[in-house]
């Protein structure tokens, strides 16, 4: 899922201070799963923002809604009526949802309420971890299903750097596995360590953001 987390409340308050009526919008998909922008979080943030704004002497009315999907225009359109008299929108969806709202509510300002930061899996209750960085040239088939792009702090393709800690954790954090340590272990268990012995050439990053904004046309679907 796309992972996001609340921006600092101060930053949100700063954005909303000058407004009179704000629509706070959640999304019931990824951001609900990562407990940042689902209905529960919308209904938590709304009173919290009200209190914070009141403390600063601002009276801002906050109305709320949570869409099934904020990243599709059909769903966002449902909100146009509800939001017809607001002077700002704050979205708790990922960056995609925020932009869908911004397109449809233009020229009303749409502020992001969250920082979208990764593509994650929920490893256990209350614990999310990155899995993919949308690199555009998937190598999982060569790394036993463990991503060295998103999960190695240096996106290495040819094995672990010299920073792997004695306990197999990554040099950047005591809590994060060195993914190359895991890739090698898995390869070894499968008796396929040899497949990692070949030098992997420099990667072609051009099918990701590095190649410019993504735009894909499928004639068969038009």
């Amino acid at each position: 899922m796309i992972f996001a987390e609340w921006k600092p409340i101060d930053e949100l308050v700063e954005k909303l201070k000058a407004h009179k009526k704000v629509l706070l919008v959640g999304c019931a998909t990824c951001v609900a799963e990562c407990a940042a922008g689902g209905e529960k979080e919308v209904e938590t943030l709304a009173p919290l923002l009200s209190m914070a704004l009141k403390k600063q002497g601002c009276s801002v009315e906050i109305i709320t809604a949570t869409l099934e999907k904020q990243c599709e225009f059909e769903f966002v359109e449902e909100l146009i009526e509800k939001g017809h008299d607001v002077d700002a929108v704050m979205s708790l969806a990922c960056g995609i949802g925020v932009q869908a709202m911004a397109d449809l509510f233009d020229p009303i300002p749409v502020y992001p309420g969250v920082n979208t930061s990764a593509l994650t899996i929920r490893e256990e209750a209350g614990l999310w971890a990155g899995r993919c960085a949308a690199c555009g040239d998937c190598v999982l088939g060569e790394t036993f299903g463990l991503c060295p792009i998103a999960r190695c702090a240096k996106s290495l393709l040819n094995g672990p750097c010299g920073g792997t800690r004695g306990n197999g954790k990554c040099e950047v954090s005591e809590d994060t596995d060195c993914i190359w340590n895991l890739i090698v272990e898995r390869g070894d268990e499968r008796g396929q360590l040899d497949s990692l012995a070949e030098v992997k050439k420099s990667k072609n990053w051009s099918n990701s953001r590095h190649g410019g904004p993504k735009r894909v046309i499928r004639e068969d679907l038009r």
């Binding site: 094995g159 672990p160 010299g162 920073g163 004695g166 197999g168 990692l196 012995a197 030098v199």
Partner: peptide
């Protein structure tokens, strides 16, 4: 560079070979 004792140790010689191959 070569870090012969870093985990996963069994891979460190292979990695050295990769560097030399390269």
């Amino acid at each position: 560079a070569w870090t012969p004792f870093g985990p996963p140790e069994k891979f460190r010689t292979i990695r050295l070979k990769k560097k030399i191959d390269a």
